[in-house]
Design a binder for these strands. Structure first.
Length: 547
DNA sequence: TATTTAAGCGCC
DNA sequence: AAAGGGCGCTTAAATA
């Protein structure tokens, strides 16, 4: 059963649809939404809520203590169906762009989102849902893209729940780390003392007593006057230089980065009541990866500060990482048995070395990354032919994705998310040699994007399935269902890594569920294909102890 | 003065 | 080792 919610001038209305999509009841006005949703959730585990944006409905429900099992997020699904090559012929994909193609509207300030009367985008959720069902039903294998839509929507639920629960964050621990590395918190506009000391060492070594190292042009000038020929002030370029100024300069850069990105200021604005609540954006990246917005930089939390993520007393963090996810996804996508076999013993890169293709694990890793990103030069580019000889199917797969992109074609992930159409201009008979060169470079660049798109996008699908399955399994653990203060729940997600916060006595069970959910995800995407998705799990007190 | 762009660096 | 994919954020510099 589907339960379609919409907001109209008269308030919130609810329409029941049976599994065939036919209205079986309603629309009925809803007076107390949270109560209504809670009742329906208890009544039927098989129902699925249908709404425009999870981010507009679910936070208020969570605030009222209500969790939902399943939903369809119409806006996220529209974005997939609008672009997918599998639904290209549908009325939805061929029709004019409308409000459903627009980003989620910003919430109005001051209103109570749960009860606010709000306009639907263009036309109602019922009609949009019907269009989407028709588009899915007309595909050769509706279950394929149907799984993607369900996983994407589950991701939206998880994003809202993780924000609601928050990542446990110890301000005092973080502050101690900062004081230790930089010196105690200074007054505004001043540098911490340890940082200032390192800066003075740089200034002395460069004989530039007033140097502002935060200005790249100024720093470049100072380095030049000291006789150091560099193109930029990037750390990796400076690393190889032998000069007394370099060590303190690199140290200063490290400190400055920590201070500006995750210093006291970050702490003040992003951590409250012992929780960091990032604003995740499911589907925020074209490949299907999540993005994040607003302060915090949830997806760029440096390893340096992860020690401040500490489980509550009596609780543990279970940190799980899908080992070498993208290479395994490539092996599965291309059905390259040899590469799958290389990963079957645990460490895929070690398996590649064992097969004799390359001689060190580091080479295996850099060669694989190069294959997936489209490296042409350097170490990675040199190793590529060896990899291609050992694993012809896998390499041919990414090469074909690259060629398709260069031809201006769309590529599609395992479950049906398609790449955007390239804006490559090409050239005509009036083009100069420089125009031709530029156009070819653009085409190759787009080819690197499409090459990576299929792998990164399918990895994102795997991760969504993993996390959605895990969520269901965690909800089944114990009587604390729906309760973020006593039950195991997800608190962090980072592309191929999740963190679960749980009472100590549940940690072992959580670990089992994490592995089982990973195996499920592999089967969901790739069926009976013999490909392993091993998960590295660490049960820790603080996130810094993992890996 | 306000807004946009670029450099640099963090994550995968 | 530092070339190749996807992001967001902060600061300084450039532009309106």
């Amino acid at each position: 059963m589907y339960l379609v919610l919409s907001r109209g001038p008269a308030g919130v209305s609810l329409t029941e649809l049976d599994d065939s999509g036919k209205i079986s009841r309603g629309p009925d006005d809803v007076v107390d939404l949270a109560a209504e949703v809670a009742i329906r959730e208890r009544a039927s585990a098989a129902s699925r809520w249908v709404w425009d944006d999870t981010s507009r409905w679910y936070p208020a429900l969570l605030g009222a203590g209500v969790r939902v099992d399943r939903c369809i997020d119409l806006r996220l699904c529209r974005a997939i169906l609008r672009n997918s090559s599998l639904t290209a012929a549908s009325a939805l994909a061929t029709g004019a762009h409308d409000g459903w193609d627009e980003p989620t509207p910003e919430p109005r300030r001051g209103g109570d989102a749960l009860f606010e009367v709000d306009e639907q985008p263009d036309d109602g959720a019922l009609r949009e849902f019907a269009r989407q069902r028709a588009a899915v039903a007309a595909t050769a294998n509706p279950a394929r893209i149907g799984l993607l839509l369900a996983a994407e929507s589950a991701g939206a639920l998880i994003a809202a729940e993780m924000r609601f629960a928050g990542l446990p964050w110890r301000t005092d621990v973080h502050d101690a780390m900062l004081s230790d590395l930089l010196g105690p918190r200074p007054a505004a506009e001043h540098r911490p003392v340890k940082m200032q000391a390192v800066l003075e060492a740089v200034r002395a070594a460069l004989d530039s007593p007033t140097l502002n190292p935060d200005s790249p042009p100024e720093l470049l000038g100072a380095l030049g006057r000291a006789g150091l020929q560099v193109q930029s002030t990037r750390s990796w370029e400076l690393q190889s230089i032998d000069h007394p100024a370099i060590a303190p300069l690199l140290e200063y850069k490290k400190m400055a980065r920590l201070l500006s990105a995750n210093g006291w200021n970050w702490l003040d604005t992003n951590v409250a009541n012992g929780r960091f609540r990032p604003d995740y954006v499911p589907g925020g990246v074209v490949t299907g990866r999540w993005a994040s917005k607003g302060g915090g930089g949830a997806l760029q939390l440096p390893r340096q500060v992860r020690g401040a993520v500490v489980a509550d007393p009596g609780w543990k963090l279970v940190v799980a990482d899908a080992a070498q996810l993208e290479p395994r996804i490539l092996a599965a996508l291309s059905a390259d048995r040899g590469m799958a076999e290389a990963g079957s013993a645990g460490d895929l890169y070690a398996g590649i070395v064992a097969s004799g293709a390359v001689d060190t694990r580091a080479h295996a890793k850099v060669a694989m990354l190069g294959a997936m990103y489209g490296a042409t030069s350097g170490e990675s580019g040199r190793l590529l032919p060896r990899l291609a000889r050992a694993y012809p199917r896998a390499i041919a797969f990414v090469e074909e994705a690259a060629r398709a992109g260069e031809r201006g074609e769309v590529v599609t992930t395992r479950l049906g998310r398609s790449s955007p159409r390239g804006a490559s201009a090409g050239y005509d008979e009036t083009a100069t040699a420089a125009d031709v060169t530029r156009a070819r470079a653009e085409a190759r660049s787009w080819g690197r994007f499409t090459r990576n798109f299929v792998v990164q996008g399918t990895a994102a699908e795997w991760a969504l399935c993993w996390m959605a399955g895990l969520r269901g399994r965690l909800l089944g653990l114990g009587p604390a269902r729906g309760d973020f203060t006593s039950g195991a729940h997800l608190v962090f997600f980072l592309h191929d890594e999740v963190v679960v916060h749980c009472p100590e006595d549940l940690a072992e069970r959580v670990e089992l569920e994490l592995r089982a959910a990973a195996a499920d995800a592999g089967r969901l995407l790739f069926g009976a294909l013999p490909i392993e998705f091993p998960v590295t799990v660490a049960v820790v007190q603080d996130y810094g102890q993992a890996k």
